[in-house]
């Protein structure tokens, strides 16, 4: 039997350090709490949640941390309307929040935009548009999260992007040459000072995806292990596999890339982006923040609806 330093059976191999259930849980919570300590001040926190493994882990840990400090925190969920997927994770999340006394706000694509994601994808196909489902979903979801987090008084939105997500995004931006997008990543993402824009913060940025899967299996046995049916359409899906294989060939690669990215590359990208950055304006249709006359969400709506 592989043992933790305390003698108990190990459940997770942390870069050559086997940890038991207790010490693995303590390590993961400690890492997330460190990030919260670093970046949260006098804030009201909105946690973007989906009922998946990463955001449930983040919600549990950050809720406990915020409660100890008297910091207001609530969950905010967008139900895109993906049959067989979001309905299951939503039911789990609602139950999770009510059993722990966590405030949860849910917003639906159907009510907000008049159509579910399933219906929007159908319309995309009928119109023969070349837009990935993840682009439609991500744009509209971020739009609703920012709008409602702000209206509910949040000063930071916590996103559960993990180490693997961040490395995938890094490679995707490198691949597509989108340096402006790459400049807005890091622990605090999309940092553009604007009264309508709520800063995004990623406390799981140093946590490997496998760790949140193990944490969920150990602590949330009822959490549905379901995947989005549109996942396989995306570039991210292929990048995900590439990042797994990279880590397999060069152990520690993800952590190393993240360090280099945060410390060396990101400051240069941000400095460069500042030179070309245009001030945010209000979308002429909906009044939400936009980098052009019309925001991306309205642009999408006009194409699809």
């Amino acid at each position: 039997m592989v043992r933790c330093f305390c003698g108990e059976r190990a459940v997770f191999n942390l870069e050559g350090r086997p940890l038991c259930r207790k010490h693995f849980t303590e390590w993961l919570k400690g890492e997330v709490r460190k990030e919260l300590e670093r970046f949260v001040g006098r804030d009201v926190l909105a946690v973007a949640v989906s009922g998946g493994k990463d955001s449930t882990t983040l919600l549990e840990i950050s809720h406990e941390w915020a409660r100890e400090r008297g910091i207001k925190l609530f969950g905010i969920m967008v139900d895109e309307g993906i049959e067989g997927y979001r309905d299951r994770t939503r039911a789990f999340l609602e139950n999770f929040c009510s059993s722990r006394g966590i405030e949860l706000h849910v917003y639906e694509f159907r009510k907000e935009f008049g159509a579910t994601l399933d219906e929007l994808v159908e319309r995309r196909d009928r119109k023969g548009l070349d837009i990935q489902a993840c682009t439609i979903c991500g744009t509209l979801r971020r739009y609703l999260l920012n709008k409602y987090a702000r209206e509910l008084g949040a000063t930071k939105i916590l996103f559960a992007h993990n180490l693997d997500d961040e490395i995938q995004t890094f490679f995707m931006n490198l691949f597509t040459g989108n340096l402006a997008q790459a400049s807005r990543k890091g622990e605090l993402a999309g940092v553009i000072e604007h009264e309508l824009f709520v800063i995004r913060f990623k406390p799981l940025i140093r946590i490997p995806e496998k760790a949140t899967a193990v944490y969920s299996l150990l602590r949330f046995p009822e959490l549905p292990e379901v995947e989005c049916p549109y996942l396989k359409e995306s570039l991210r899906y292929r990048m995900r596999r590439f990042v797994f294989e990279l880590e397999n060939r060069i152990p520690g690669a993800k952590r190393r890339i993240l360090e280099v990215y945060l410390e060396k590359i990101l400051p240069l990208l941000r400095e460069n982006a500042r030179k070309f950055q245009k001030p945010l304006q209000r979308c002429s249709i909906c009044g939400e923040p936009a980098s052009r006359e019309i925001c991306k969400a309205c642009e999408l709506r006009m194409k699809l609806l």
Partner: peptide
């Protein structure tokens, strides 16, 4: 739940849960 370093024995049942996305 175990680590990949665990030794196997005759008659063990070993399940692999794929790290699901989302």
């Amino acid at each position: 739940v175990v680590t990949e370093l665990e030794e196997l024995r005759e008659g063990d049942t070993l399940e692999f849960v794929r790290v699901w996305s989302g």
